[in-house]
Design a protein around this nucleic acid. Structure first.
Lengths: 141, 141
DNA sequence: CTTGACCCTGGACCGAGCTCCAGGGTTTAG
DNA sequence: CTAAACCCTGGAGCTCGGTCCAGGGTCAAG
């Protein structure tokens, strides 16, 4: 296991993160994943942290974040010098965003619970309570 | 305000829900919105509930639900007869889904808070805590 | 040193979810 | 009775986020 053989192939990180190989290369092109080292033959070689990063991307995507938003989340850390207060501010903004999503989902959850409950006590399924649940509101997503 | 003039135009429901007119027509085509009544001249006429329904669609979309998933959520109510236990089961499944999303978001929120905190105590922004936050896990989305 | 599994690039193509015409008809305020 | 504002249909086109080749090179187990 010399310096050249070390590291994971793209196939392995992809499998590790539950993504397709093409998708990993796509994320690299889109700037979500740093360009990895290469073998002399031109093969990408990844560190195990790449798997974590890709898992993060996948899950954030499933939560409805766009790739642009995910890029922003990921670059919150890549501010080694000056911008500390700035990073803090951006993190706060993201927190507010996340909190408002949680609140929305909790409203939706309550509505679904109501629906399930109203159904268990017989009688025909009444007029949709879901629609009552998520009205108004929209903090600056 | 006779029977013909009653109801909202597509422009009004669209504005009310924060959507484009074309999008409303698109949702109708996609079966997310029931076909509305028409004036003799062929104009769509909506009830105020249509606005609620569209707001729900918009917000669910922002939370990362696909239109297909949203359609499922909306049809949970449209089961007037037989399927009561079935509706209940489907609602439970949706609740589980929503709960797992909330859990993910809460993990992400904690990670962001950690990041903001670690930054406030000076020192250069440390290695990304966000990546630690959302590992493993993936309940059946 | 072969061979099968894997990786490379570049570019075409795809489905979801809109968005934008063109060409024409309807409504309604004044 | 106008004229501006709005609506209709049908269909083309666009962005995002991948996905899938073709044609060729690399790696590593045996």
């Amino acid at each position: 296991m010399d310096a050249v053989t070390a590291g994971l192939t793209i196939g392995k990180v992809a499998r590790g993160a539950g993504l397709a190989v093409d998708t990993v290369r796509y994320y690299e092109r889109e700037g979500l994943l740093e360009k990895p080292a290469r073998t002399p033959g031109g093969y990408r070689r990844y560190s195990p942290e790449a798997v974590k990063r890709l898992q993060f991307i996948r899950q954030a995507k499933e939560l409805g974040f766009t790739l642009a938003e995910i890029r922003e989340l990921l670059t919150l850390k890549v501010a080694p010098d000056k911008s500390c207060a700035d990073v803090r501010a951006r993190a706060q903004a993201k927190i507010a965003d996340v909190e408002s999503r949680i609140a929305q989902l909790e409203r939706m959850k309550r509505a679904l619970e109501q629906l399930a409950a109203s159904c268990s006590g017989r009688g025909p399924t009444s007029e949709c309570p879901i629609l009552e649940a998520l009205e108004r509101q929209e903090p600056g997503r």
